[in-house]
Nucleic acid binder design. Structure first.
Length: 487
RNA sequence: CGGGGUGUAGCGCAGUUGGUAGCGCACCGCGUUUGGGACGCGGGGGUCGUCGGUUCGAGUCCGACCACCCCGACCA
């Protein structure tokens, strides 16, 4: 049950987020520190994300499998950078069945190691390649500071792991999956992400190259929303993933990995939500249309209910995710607010007047219109019951497009091009800076030191056609990078 | 792991010089209501975060611990 007002985004963005996650019943705090319980409404959203991604994975030739939750500790010691990167956040099982284990088991923080081990068993010949496997699962990273969906000790995600004969193939795969993520984020979640390459300091532990989709939240902070890595032969050498090529020569594979997690739910919340609550993109929303029957007495109820039922059937038959709010004892006004909190894209009101006029009232969540006397002011409109499924479908498409458009405008308004370093230091307090960078760790570290902003990515698109000078040190630079504060 | 804050009913809070726990919302029942957060009447629900100390007596005073949240160093 929704309670009264939320904190506003302007007052305290962080509070607003926390309250919204709880009140919209997406997730709740668990008795275990840093872990979350994903509630049915949040999980359904995740299932819709899974479906949209899984289809894209299958369409690009991948198959799903499941690897163990427990990984022998020694596996982590085989790849130097990997162990250094993950050692601080490993959860380790030392006992089982009441006895101390001979070798401790790590609860997977990511599965490169155990999958690498298995790939070395499965891959013998160039004919076995490429191997294109994805896994849906949970992982554990012992985080010091957690926040629902954005960073929790345990989280849910998918991790794709592929092995290829050549560097070129593996690099192509890395970028292909980055494109899949970007396509998903933009066209399903209406989150206008920027694709790019991570700096050396920001890349995945053990990768040769990390790529990312970066999103801008309403408070202008960056959220890394998905990553795709080219791992070179690092894991192949650590785990002996070798094959015999066409010339009968033994070669190491080139591997990739790519992941997208429940953090995406946080991205959706912080991209689209308003002070009224959640706003979900129609393509992913667990409930796309909520129907509110309105009646004052039994006679009106008798008139309204059959119409509600008929329309519900029609929408359902058309493949629309629709729910009728049949709760008794609550006023329509309360229900409006309640479903707005939960972010349902479209609300349909059906009362005696609609039955009489063969119409329904439709209210768009992305354009709250609180005064029905001023239909021009908000998103409330009255449409005929004829071809209603088509009108509703059309409106859902319109809402989806409007959300992406609004989010894109928001993103663009936050990207700035400071003229010099002094200006950059100001800009990154409330915006992103898109600046030439010499790609040295020293300059990157200096920005972080001075402003707390990090490099988010060197974007793959939108690079200038001429060289420039590093915004920090003034040395020649060929590419621009985004500097921003991040989650 | 450092700094700050909070722990009293499901949630938000009050609780005086220490005297045996209360308000709002939510919940349950009945009735009236219902096109933008309804109302009346009745009802249920608390070892006051934990442990210890002071005291005739502790939600209140003292100490320790624990948990969670917020802000900083690491990360999807």
């Amino acid at each position: 049950m929704a309670e009264e007002k939320l904190s506003t985004r302007a007052e305290n963005f962080s509070e607003w987020y926390n309250e919204l996650v709880l009140k919209a019943e997406l997730a709740d705090y668990s008795p275990v520190r840093g872990c979350m319980v994903v509630r049915p409404y949040g999980w359904t959203l995740w299932e819709n994300i899974q479906q949209a991604l899984d289809k894209r994975f299958k369409d690009t030739g991948h198959v799903n499998a499941a690897f163990p939750l427990f990984i022998p500790m020694s596996f982590f010691e085989k790849e130097k950078e990997h162990v250094e990167g993950f050692a601080p956040e490993l959860a380790v099982v030392t006992h089982g069945g009441g006895e101390k284990l001979e070798e401790p088991l790590v609860v997977r923080p990511t599965s490169e190691t155990i999958i690498g081990y298995m790939y070395s068993k499965w891959i013998k010949s160039w004919r076995d390649l490429p191997v294109l496997i994805n896994q849906w699962g949970n992982v554990v990273r012992w985080e010091l500071r957690t926040k629902l969906f954005l960073r929790t000790t345990e989280f849910y995600w998918q991790e794709g792991h592929t092995a290829h004969a050549t560097e070129q193939e593996a690099r192509e795969e890395t970028l292909r999956m980055l494109d899949v993520y970007a396509d998903f984020a933009i066209n399903e979640a209406a989150v206008p992400v920027l694709k790019g390459i991570k700096s050396e300091t920001e890349k995945f532990a053990g990768a040769v190259m990390s790529t990312t989709i970066e999103a801008i939240m309403q408070d202008a902070r960056a959220l890394q929303s998905g990553t795709s890595h080219y791992l070179g032969q690092n894991f192949a050498k650590a785990f002996n993933i070798q094959f015999t090529d066409q010339n009968n020569e033994l070669q190491y594979c080139h591997t990739t990995s790519w992941g997208l997690s429940t953090r995406m739910i946080g991205a959706i919340i912080m991209t689209h939500g308003d002070d009224q609550g959640l706003i979900l993109p129609p393509r992913l929303a667990p409930i796309q249309v909520v129907m509110i029957p309105i009646f004052k007495n039994d006679a009106e109820k008798a008139a309204v209910q059959p119409v509600v039922n008929r329309i519900w059937q029609e929408l359902k038959a058309a493949g629309i995710r629709v729910k009728v709010d049949e709760r008794e004892g609550l006023t329509p006004g309360f229900k409006y607010n309640d479903w707005e909190m939960r972010g349902v894209p479209l609300r349909m009101e059906i009362g005696p007047k609609d039955v009489e006029k063969n119409s329904v009232a439709l209210a768009r969540r992305d354009k709250p219109g609180r005064d029905p006397q001023k239909p021009g002011a908000g998103g409330k409109s009255f449409v005929s019951q004829e071809n209603l499924a088509a009108s509703v479908s059309g409106m859902l498409v319109t809402i989806q497009a409007a959300l992406l458009e609004r989010a894109t405008a928001m993103r663009d308004s936050h990207i700035r091009d400071p003229k010099n370093y002094e200006e950059l230091k100001q800009v990154v307090q409330n915006d992103w800076a898109f600046s030439y960078w010499c790609e040295s760790k020293a300059c990157e570290a200096k920005v972080k030191e001075d402003t707390k902003a990090s490099t988010r990515c060197i974007p793959l698109e939108g690079q200038p056609d001429h060289a420039g000078t590093c915004i920090v040190c003034g040395k020649p630079a060929t590419r621009k990078v985004y500097f921003a504060k991040s989650y």
